[in-house]
Computed example of a mutant assay.
Amino acid sequence: MATNFRPSPTFKFLALLLTIFQCTTTTLAQAPVPAPSGPTNITKILEKAGQFTTLIRLMKVTQLGDQINTQLNNSNQGMTVFAPTDNAFSSLKPGTLNSLSDQQKVSLLQFHVVPNYLTNSQLQTVSNPLRTQAGDTASDKFPLNVTTSGNQVNVSTGVVDTTVSNSIYTDGSLAVYQLDKVLLPMSMFGPASPAPAPEPEKKKKSGAQDDVPATDDGSVSADASGAVVFGSYLHGLSVGAVAIVTMLCL
């Protein structure tokens, strides 16, 4: 004969406690582990993202990576970094980086750093030319212009046009955006300055020898000067001969 089991209030209470304990344990196990605290480090961020070996090496050689970290951890202004991939650097003309001086390498990297934090939406409304850490935004120096097409952000230097292909990192203080081309500034990679205009032709010297051709420095040429002297000599001989004949006839 079946017996109806009726749990006592104590049993119900214990069962409820067990259920709550199991749920709490499961929730705690699924919670994400908090990231380790510490100062922002641009090179570590790029290393974690991968495909930025060349950029990291240049940042270490020029010490720009340390400068960025110092500014980020001692200022509330924030920073934006445009990060070209390894493929972007590989697409440069062979020997491009080796042809640059140490100072030019610093300027090239500074041209990829904006000294304030810009979200993707803010990039679509910035005023051009955008000022970078390279400094002068004049058209023949370090101009950086940002335009948009829908949600696509385009970056132009006057030498290179490229697109922001990905947002690598953002934390409210630092924003890192991936580029598929290296930003080449006008002052270093723009067209060569035009050759100076030729000087106007110098005028001949005025005087008795106006009809005698002159050299570039205005002096009479040796051939023309000799011709003038020889002509004068013949004229003197003719006058002397006429005088002698006249005397004999008298």
Rank of each mutant, 00 (worst) to 15 (best):
I20W: 00
A224R: 02
L16C: 03
R57Q: 14
Q63N: 15
A15Q: 08
P194R: 01
M188D: 01
S90E: 15
A29Q: 06
V182S: 08
V164G: 00
N120C: 02
V239K: 09
V176R: 07
K141W: 08
N74D: 13
A192F: 06
Q178G: 02
L130Q: 13
N151A: 05
T170W: 04
L17T: 02
D223E: 14
P36C: 00
K93H: 15
D216I: 05
F52L: 07
I20V: 06
P115C: 10
A2H: 11
D66R: 10
N98V: 12
G65M: 06
V33N: 04
K203P: 08
A31S: 03
S232K: 12
K44S: 04
S139E: 11
Y233S: 13
N4A: 07
D217G: 05
P34Y: 04
G207I: 11
P7W: 10
L248A: 07
T3S: 07
S101Y: 00
T96D: 11
L130H: 13
A224K: 02
S75C: 15
L46A: 05
R131W: 10
A175G: 15
S238V: 08
R131F: 10
R131Y: 08
T132V: 14
A241P: 02
A195D: 14
G172K: 09
V61G: 01
A138R: 12
L123P: 03
L18W: 02
N128P: 03
F5T: 13
Q122R: 12
P198R: 09
L179N: 00
N76E: 15
I244G: 01
A31K: 04
S107E: 06
L174G: 12
Q22G: 07
Q133K: 14
P185K: 06
F142R: 05
S221R: 01
F11M: 13
Q178E: 07
N151V: 00
I244Y: 00
A83R: 03
D161F: 03
N87F: 13
A49Q: 09
V245Y: 00
P7C: 14
N128C: 03
L92K: 10
F11V: 15
K204I: 08
Q122Y: 12
T27A: 11
P32E: 04
Q178A: 09
P213I: 02
D86T: 13
S127I: 09
N73H: 12
P32V: 05
F21D: 06
L100C: 09
K93Q: 15
A134V: 09
A29M: 06
S90F: 06
F13G: 06
N116P: 11
P213C: 01
A2N: 11
D217V: 08
M79R: 14
M247T: 07
L123I: 09
F189K: 06
A88Y: 07
V176F: 01
I244H: 00
L237K: 07
A138M: 07
S173C: 04
V155A: 02
S90D: 14
N87T: 15
P115Y: 10
T85N: 13
T3Y: 04
T170E: 13
Q103C: 00
G231T: 12
S219L: 09
L183C: 02
A15T: 12
G135T: 11
V159F: 11
A192R: 12
G95R: 06
T85D: 11
T27L: 08
L109Q: 01
V212S: 04
S75I: 15
C249E: 03
Q178V: 01
P213Q: 00
Q124N: 01
T19R: 00
P129V: 13
Q63S: 15
I168S: 10
